[in-house]
Design a protein around this nucleic acid. Structure first.
Length: 891
RNA sequence: GCGGGCGUGAUGGAAUGGUAGACAUACCAGACUUAAAAUCUGUUGGGCCUUGUGCCCGUGUGGGUUCGAGUCCCACCGCCCGCACCA
């Protein structure tokens, strides 16, 4: 009798795979290829359970595809540029490069024991000069194609990180990383022309059948297509050069309801007026300062400044409208100017009420309706309404119909043009930071901005930099900045901005197809391996990373680095849920002045939560409530309730529990994968993160659940051990039943794996294990059953599976053994149990041959005692027989 | 505000329109043990009585379609997520 020893077998089988080069991906035209990829990690230095779940899911797919005869590419790398490395250098000293490569080595060491089917020969980090040098080559090609440009722009400046952020990286007015309030600054910046692809990126979403609808929708909203009318008001008594104000509207049908024109404080006209009117200047300055926090936006009052200028209504030049500078109008959307229609826009209504401007309805719910003046009337654009002030189309029409008619009318009458606008703006990629990919251009007094010559790539980051002063160390590097102009050879200076790290992750998946190529890609490899057949990652990347990557694929096609077929680089996308855990805390009341962990002062009487690691708490149930006791206070010779009684009145010792939340270091509700692997082995960790919850949902890590996974793997191993010790010629009972159950399990697990139903697949494996454990079948059948079970488990628990395979004398490695096929004949039982319903309620069951004729089944059903009793002499109106499923008698 | 998703036992969750609650946790009971742990076995949606091969109710609430609805349709309630002065 031997034992399940994960620590020993996991190391052994990992060595076997490595020696065999099982996961090395080599182009092979004779096999269908399959590229599976998990979003690569940032090398923080420690893996967490989220990583384990993410990579395990990818591994299940990869191993399943290997077993079904695919040539699988399953690579791994490191998203290694970015600010944490610089912050660490500033906080604790050292160099970002050393910190990053140290973390990579450490994390790789932690990942290896998971036994993932990764081709490590393709590994790279985005901070490798070999990688970012090719990225620089791409940049130069993009520049030549006009896909990158430089412009003066008002940018989001993060005062904490001392860098510029893309619009996408500002969340509710705060930097996505630092959380600092973002300021507006004008700087010369590099931009990718992603907006040129707005329509293309929007429309191509339709072709992504294997993407979650939610992600496609988020991207569509982000791109934000709108159709409207652009036209100009002519001004009265405006400064020179401002005789027209261009406006954009999505509701041209409400043009006759216009009661004012509003312009942004950043509008050229506002800036002109600002010059010699201090009141305007004061107002605009106030607006620009305007809070960008969520609360500020929500509570912000609509503020306007009457410029005294008026404009003529395009339909009636005698009708003049006042021009206001208003704080709620954004310069970077539309034209930075609007006309206000208070009757049909809540925001305009609020503004009009405040400044006593007319409220003029253009449409009403019915012909008899009074004009609505108490609130804006904003029905859905698909509702039919009555246009009391319509000028195009029918009196009764939907908003959409009216908009189309209004645009046509205005175009025909030379008032304006129909225009499609997008919310998506160009992607600002300049960052004033050290630890990123240098932008490969040179500034020359004579030649201007000149791209670096490709033979000079990579432009490597200098190692000798200091982080003692804030700002970009490249800017003050003594020699790195100075270089000859690539065009004329005269002394010039390098661009010191580096690229946004989202650039690094926008094409890494392509680089995996030829990581050592001396050009960004190798077309043969790209054509063979692209696209990524299955991409797996967190939903937090639904917009930025995926949108940028889709843009990059197109830009790389345009510059000859990718085939057109790779325009949508991810055929299928799966967004997995997080790993959560409940949170444990005690309370600490401060009796004297003290400081908390962050050094902040705590005043007397303050009660603070003290968080505890799961491993430091014993959890139990008292009066139906989950509570805990600190392990240090726990007396193991007493029951949980007795222990709890001793601490329940002491808030410093009684542990309260907050329901499951995302694992976070600050709340200490983390479980260290290394600890789990040390205690139970990687297979247990892998099995658990896949069981219990559907992969797209969050899974709660529980100690009992992990324990159960471990017990189950032991059970499977013990069954294997028992079967090995059976008499090889032993005959038994129920061979047929066991094999039937086996084939059903093959079928169900295969379906589960194919459809990301890992939790359901695991449930079937539990059930089949129980069947096998109880089976009295002969040796041959049991051996077949355990070997098949091992194969079905192998994507999830590959080490245990290999060990069972070897014990039973399986040929070669299980990882390369062909996936078992369910025998159709074995899936259909000879006899089936059919429930009999009377009026939809189950009343009886019958056992009948599976292929019995409907009429026969009906006869047996009607003859059933319970049916006769329930019918009580009544004649059934109708009998529905669904072969093999159910009988329903309608009385 | 706009857009999307989800509501099933004590808990996580199963159910191509066809026996609701698979599988797991937790709880309870039993076996083994001096005892505990481990292991194994069994019970567990609610209610009713006449304790049966029994009946009634039950997938957020109300309605509808259907022989049959957790599943499809409509309305409402609740929760979650994304976007948001976007003209």
């Amino acid at each position: 009798m031997s034992q399940y020893t994960p620590a020993e077998i996991e190391a052994r089988w990992q060595q076997a795979w490595e020696k065999n080069e099982t996961f090395k991906a080599v182009r092979d035209a004779s096999k269908p290829k399959y590229y599976v990829l998990e979003m690569f990690p940032y090398p923080s230095g420690r893996i967490h359970m989220g990583h384990v779940r993410n990579y395990t899911m990818g591994d299940v797919i990869a191993r399943y595809k290997i077993a079904t005869g695919h040539n699988v590419l399953h690579p791994m790398g490191w998203d290694a540029f970015g600010m944490p490395a610089e912050n660490a250098a500033m906080a604790i000293g050292g160099h970002p490069k050393d910190w990053t490569y140290g973390n990579i080595a450490e994390m790789k060491k932690q990942m290896k024991p998971l036994g993932l089917s990764i081709d490590w020969s393709r590994e790279f980090a985005t901070c490798d000069p070999e990688y970012y040098g090719q990225q620089q080559a791409l940049f130069i090609d993009f520049l030549a194609e006009g896909l990158v440009y430089r412009k003066n722009a008002i940018v989001n400046w993060d005062p904490v990180d001392m860098t510029v952020l893309a619009n996408e990286q500002v969340e509710a007015g705060r930097g996505w990383r630092s959380g600092a309030l973002v300021e507006r600054r004008e700087l010369t910046q590099w931009f990718f022309k992603i907006s040129e692809y707005s329509n293309e990126l929007l429309e191509a979403l339709d072709s992504l059948d294997n993407w979650p609808a939610k992600v496609k929708l988020m991207q569509a909203n982000w791109i934000g297509k709108s159709r409207g009318l652009q036209f100009a008001f002519s001004t009265v008594e405006a400064p020179e050069g401002h005789d027209r104000i261009e406006v954009y509207t999505t509701r041209p049908d409400t043009l006759l309801g216009a009661s004012f024109v509003g312009i942004s404080p950043d509008h050229p006209l506002a800036k002109e007026l600002e010059k010699d009117n201090p009141a305007v200047a004061a107002f605009c300055t106030e607006c620009r300062k305007g809070g960008t926090t969520e609360e500020a936006i929500e509570t912000a009052e609509k503020l306007g400044f009457d410029t005294g200028i008026t404009v003529r209504h395009p339909f009636d030049t005698a009708h003049e409208l006042p021009v206001y500078i208003a704080n709620f109008i954004l310069m970077d959307y539309g034209t930075g100017a609007i006309f206000g229609c208070p009757a049909h826009d809540e925001r305009d209504f609020e503004f009009a009420t405040k400044y006593e401007l007319p409220i003029i309805s253009t449409y009403l719910p019915s012909e008899e309706s009074e004009e609505i003046l108490a609130a804006a009337y904003v029905p859905a654009k698909t509702d039919k309404v009555f246009y009391n002030r319509g000028f195009a189309g029918e009196p009764w029409q939907t908003g959409n119909e009216a908009i189309d008619a209004a645009i046509t009318f205005c175009e025909e009458n030379g008032i304006g043009q129909g225009v499609t606008k997008f919310r998506l703006r160009d992607w600002g990629l300049s960052r004033q930071r050290y630890w990123g990919c240098p932008i490969p251009v040179v500034h020359c007094d004579d030649c201007g901005v000149v791209p670096e010559k490709k033979e000079n790539l990579p432009i490597e980051l200098p190692y000798d930099v200091d982080f003692d002063t804030p700002g970009n160390p490249l800017d003050r590097h003594p020699t790195w900045r100075d270089c000859p102009c690539p065009s004329c050879g005269k002394p010039a200076t390098r661009e010191t901005d580096t690229m946004d790290t989202f650039v690094d992750s926008s094409w890494y998946f392509v680089r995996f197809t030829a990581p050592d190529a001396t050009t960004p890609t190798n077309m043969e490899d790209a054509e063979y391996w692209m696209n990524v057949d299955q991409y797996i990652g967190g939903v937090e990347h639904a917009i930025l990373h995926l949108l940028y990557s889709r843009f990059f694929a197109r830009a790389m096609e345009m510059t000859g680095h990718l085939p057109k077929s790779a325009n949508e680089p991810f055929d299928a996308l799966f967004t997995q849920g997080m790993v959560t855990h409940e949170i444990y805390y005690t309370r600490n009341q401060f009796r004297r002045q003290d400081t908390d962990e962050a050094g902040k002062e705590i005043s007397v009487g303050t009660t603070l939560a003290v968080w505890h690691l799961p491993e430091d708490v014993v959890v139990g149930e008292v009066d139906g409530q989950r509570v805990g006791v600190l392990k240090n206070d726990f007396n193991t010779s007493l029951s949980f309730v007795e222990n709890f009684d001793k601490v329940k009145d002491d808030p410093k010792k009684k542990v309260d529990i907050i329901p499951s939340a995302k694992m976070s270091k600050s709340k200490k509700n983390v479980v260290d994968p290394l600890g789990i692997i040390a205690n139970y082995g990687a297979d247990t960790a892998r099995w658990f993160v896949l069981s219990d919850s559907p992969p797209e949902r969050d899974v709660e890590w529980t100690a009992s659940g992990a324990e159960a996974a471990f017990k189950h793997l032991n059970r499977v191993w013990n069954i294997c051990d028992r079967i090995s010790q059976m008499d090889k010629d032993a005959k038994g009972e129920g061979d047929e039943d066991l094999l039937r159950a086996m084939h059903k399990t093959i079928h169900d697990v295969t379906m589960g794996v194919e459809s990301f139903g890992f939790n359901a697949a695991i449930a079937k494996l539990y059930a089949f294990t129980a069947t096998l454990q109880k089976s009295k079948a002969g040796h041959a059948a049991q051996r077949e059953a355990i070997m098949t079970l091992a194969q079905l488990m192998s994507p999830m628990t590959p080490h245990l599976a290999e060990d069972i395979w070897a014990h039973q004398g399986g040929e070669g490695l299980i990882v390369t053994a062909p996936w078992p096929k369910a025998d159709e004949k074995m899936l259909v039982d000879d006899t089936v149990t059919m429930p009999i319903q009377i009026n939809g309620k189950r009343r009886a069951e019958i056992n009948v041959p599976a292929d019995m004729a409907k009429e026969e089944v009906e006869k047996i059903a009607l003859a059933h005692e319970a049916v006769i009793r329930t019918l009580d002499g009544a004649t059934p109106k109708k009998v529905i027989v669904v072969p093999g499923r159910i009988v329903n008698v309608v009385a």
